[in-house]
Design a protein around this nucleic acid. Structure first.
Length: 561
RNA sequence: CGGGGCGUAGCGCAGUCCGGUAGCGCACACGGUUCGGGACCGUGGGGUCGAAGGUUCAAAUCCUUUCGCCCCGACCA
């Protein structure tokens, strides 16, 4: 490809509304343009990168026996109504009506439609197992699209779905997918880890996420360096650092106008870890008192798994329900109320609200002064200890680049996707679903590999294998040498971009670094007179001069390793 | 959905407080000099100042409404 013919609108300056490195560089490098919030156009370079990724996805999916198909993006409401997700999912689903006033939605994912297909055609255990996948557009009306291509309202996803007769079959397909994902990320050159995750709205009991470590990520994972425990902090269990047991007598303390743990802690000069943080939550059934240690915080998702939907009580609700202002509520004596407490409060003696205006109580002990249901509900933090082996956990920020779910029979039961087993018994198909976002892989690859001058693509994702840079387009010798090398490289099926623009060398160098093709071949007048060209590594900036006759071989050996 | 910020030429910005009819850099076009890390000189084109309404002799600037975009939070397969 000739640079002069290709649409590569590079930008000298970063757009003011971009923050993440991948966002800035994809725009500056002419890879993408934004149409509206969360809607991106992939320009030729960007589309080539996605093409590289989807090619890898197809190879690895095909290799585990998955079959590529393609499903509509426009879905009739009925199918989603049958699984209950038409109502379970809120504003995040794009909904519309056709001319006959029939309800439709735009597909956020394809469990429903895949299962619908299976329900129509799968009859017998002999038809199973099956794995179907597609690389296709999803639409979600995200509350907050952000970070360029990382969180968008429309995006391409590789989604596969496995159909099995039993749990063993599902286990097998789940494992095959996990292994394929490992190969995919390795081939794409992104650093990643597999962690336990919350299945959330997908339902089913078991799922993992694949995470690319990056400060630009939106998720956090807790990792144990010793035993390898790895989980999204949404569900990671951890043991907070223990505190010395204080043998306090129960006593009320006057704490005028001191309401938060921080305020009372400073006022009494006692570490926040010796407090019980006490929050009133309103659930559908009843108000619930939620307790964590003063230095910890409640994790909404962990709590949601126990009490379902809930919200913090308003100030006036606290007063109505507990009869005391929010700053002074405590667990003591609240026998006829549901209390959920974090297990780290079982031991020790604590300070909390006295249920009396401007007073706190010191010396509160579990199972004496209050009685609770014990659940891990605190947010796992750096410095907490592993619940499995006791080693110190680290917490890292990550980009979610894939997930795998064991769905079980949730969708097949709802949509009557059933088969007859060997004994003629009707059973629901056992399903799994598996997603990967190619644009997120591309963004993660950039977040993990860039410098001040631009992108540094892993070879497997780069839009071209090499960039040829003839410096002076007015020098016949340069142009002839470049054209010859260009032809020869193409004959070797090496993807080559030749910057044949009649521009100053500086501009070409800057653009080349920005675009980030891993190998640059520089043809300068002086070197050519000695029969030499330069081969430069974008990442290390190391340059070797080689004889032009040997350039082809050298480049070939670079691009194949 | 709550909080904050920003909408002025393709991009980055100034001008808004204090009203007087729009400017800078880059990019673009043409001419010339240049040519190994985003050159220089000259000439030139390009803007309903996000939109609507209002105040005023006069609005990018003041007031009201509205739309869009970004960031933080909530939410999120």
């Amino acid at each position: 490809m000739r640079f002069s013919k290709m649409f590569i609108p590079t930008l000298r300056e970063a757009p003011s509304d971009a923050e993440a490195a991948s966002h800035i560089l994809m725009i500056r490098g002419g890879y993408v343009r934004q149409l509206a919030a969360g809607l991106y156009i992939f320009l030729p370079l960007g589309w080539r990168v996605l093409g590289k990724i989807t090619a890898i996805l197809k190879e690895e999916m095909d290799a585990i026996g998955a079959q590529e198909i393609s499903m509509p993006v426009l879905h009739p409401a009925e199918v989603w109504q049958q699984t209950g997700r038409w109502t379970a999912i809120g504003a995040e689903m794009f909904r519309l009506k056709d001319r006959n006033d029939r309800d439709f939605c735009l597909g956020m994912t394809h469990e429903e439609i895949m299962t619908w297909m299976a329900s129509r055609e799968i009859r017998s255990y002999r038809d199973l197992p099956q794995t179907w996948y597609q690389i296709q557009t999803k639409l979600r009306d995200e509350a907050r699209p952000k970070s360029g291509v990382l969180r968008t309202r429309e995006f391409i996803m590789k989604d596969s779905y496995s159909f099995d007769t039993d749990e063993q079959g599902l286990d097998h397909n789940y494992r095959l997918h996990a292994e394929a994902y490992h190969r995919i990320y390795n081939r794409c050159g992104v650093k990643f880890m597999q962690v336990e995750s919350d299945p959330g709205m997908m339902g089913g009991g078991y799922s993992h996420e694949f995470m690319a470590p990056s400060p630009a990520g939106e998720d956090e994972v807790a990792l144990c360096p010793k035993c390898g425990y790895a989980a999204n902090v949404e569900l990671a269990s951890s043991v907070p650092p223990s505190i010395a047991d204080e043998d306090w007598q129960t006593e009320e303390l006057h704490t005028p106008e001191k309401r938060t743990v921080g305020e009372v802690s400073r006022f009494l000069k006692v570490d926040p870890a010796y407090f019980i943080k006490c929050v009133l939550m309103i659930t559908e059934k009843e108000p619930v008192l939620v307790l964590v240690r003063g230095d910890q915080e409640v994790h909404e998702k962990k709590l949601a798994r126990i009490v379902d939907s809930h919200r913090p009580a308003q100030k006036n609700e606290v007063k109505d329900i507990l009869g005391i202002e929010a700053g002074f509520i405590g667990p003591m004596g609240r026998r006829n109320m549901k209390i959920i407490a974090d297990p780290c409060l079982k031991q020790g003696s604590y300070i909390s609200g006295a249920n009396r205006q401007h007073y706190h109580v010191k010396g509160i002990k579990a199972d004496r002064d209050f009685f609770a249901e014990w659940h891990d509900i605190h947010i796992a933090r750096q410095g907490d200890f592993c619940a499995v082996c006791g080693a110190e956990l680290t917490v890292e920020r990550v980009i979610e680049i894939g997930n795998i779910f064991k769905l079980g029979t949730k969708y097949s039961a709802a949509l009557k996707a059933v088969f007859l087993d060997e004994n003629g018994n009707e059973k629901p198909i056992v399903m799994g679903s598996y997603g990967i976002g190619p644009a997120r892989i591309a963004a993660a690859a950039i977040e993990q590999n860039y410098d001040k001058d631009g992108i540094i693509w892993p070879r497997s994702l780069a839009p071209f294998d090499i960039e040829l840079i003839p410096l002076n387009m007015n020098d016949t010798a340069t142009v002839e040498a470049a054209e010859r090398l260009y032809r020869e490289l193409q004959q070797q099926h090496i993807d080559v971009l030749m910057d044949d623009r009649d521009l100053r060398p500086g501009v070409k160098f800057k653009d080349a670094d920005l675009i980030g093709i891993p190998t640059q071949v520089i043809l300068g007048e002086k070197n050519l007179r000695e029969g030499l060209v330069e081969i430069k590594n974008r990442k290390t900036r190391e340059t070797v001069k080689v004889n032009i006759e040997k350039a082809l071989d050298t480049i070939c050996s670079l691009t194949t390793t």
